[in-house]
Simulated scan of single mutants.
Amino acid sequence: MAMGMRAFAAWFVPAAMLAAGAAQAGPIQPGLWEITSRVETISIPNAPPAVAQAMRGRPTSIRSCVTPDQAQQGPREMMKGDKSCTVTRYRMVGGAFDSEITCKRPTGTMTASSSGRYTPTSFTARSQTKATGQMAMAMTATLSGKRVGPCK
């Protein structure tokens, strides 16, 4: 079960970070960000049903430090560090965002789209993710994030 959650996080974190980076025309505020996701629906054909059941409806939170340089660069630049991912859609206007990212990994391809609302210190979003290959799955999730203070 722990391996399933780690694998899920490996697919999910790039999409969550893209959403967390959502900001107005100016940079997001640097600092410690807490991102919480809740899987609403999930289908994992190659896994025991208990794996999907354990992930559904259960909130998962991560904390990530956004440095001043990362905040200034914005989410597109932050994502360029992962050469396996490409931002295929990215629109941010008037407090709303819509994005899509595709990551090609040795185990398969993951495409995640998200849309929601943002401020420089918070966001809410709904995402849809589809993965093919060894880790085939489809899911929808809700996300929220907020700056919780300075990095430690």
Rank of each mutant, 00 (worst) to 15 (best):
S61I: 06
M1S: 14
S114Q: 09
R91D: 14
A112P: 08
K80L: 15
G21Y: 01
G108I: 05
G94S: 07
T107E: 11
Q72I: 08
T109V: 11
R117V: 14
I101E: 08
M3P: 03
P59S: 13
A54C: 13
A47Y: 05
S99I: 02
M1P: 11
A96N: 12
A20G: 15
P150K: 10
I42L: 11
C103A: 07
T111K: 05
P45R: 01
M5F: 15
P68V: 05
D82K: 06
F12M: 13
P45H: 01
M5T: 15
T109E: 11
Y118V: 13
V66W: 08
A54I: 12
I62F: 10
A20H: 00
F8G: 10
C151Q: 04
T140E: 05
K104G: 09
A19Y: 04
R105Y: 12
R63W: 08
L32A: 08
A131N: 07
E40F: 01
T140A: 04
P14G: 04
S113T: 13
V93W: 01
G145S: 02
V39S: 04
C103D: 13
M92H: 13
I44C: 09
T129R: 00
R6Q: 14
C103W: 05
T111W: 04
I28K: 08
R147G: 07
T107M: 07
P68Q: 04
Q70H: 02
A16W: 03
R38N: 11
M137K: 01
R56A: 15
T129S: 06
A20K: 03
T102G: 14
L18M: 05
G94Q: 09
P49E: 00
M1H: 14
T86H: 08
I35H: 00
R58V: 14
T60L: 15
G4T: 13
S114R: 08
S64T: 06
G26Q: 05
A7H: 04
P150V: 12
M17S: 06
L143I: 07
P59K: 12
R126P: 05
A138V: 10
I101K: 02
T36P: 03
A131Q: 02
A136G: 05
M55I: 13
Q128W: 07
G31I: 04
R6V: 15
T88Y: 00
L18S: 04
G116H: 11
T129G: 08
M17E: 11
G145Y: 00
T41W: 00
I42H: 02
Q29M: 02
A96D: 09
K104I: 13
P68A: 05
C85A: 15
G74F: 09
V51Y: 03
M92D: 10
G133V: 03
K130V: 13
T142I: 01
K80Q: 14
E100Y: 00
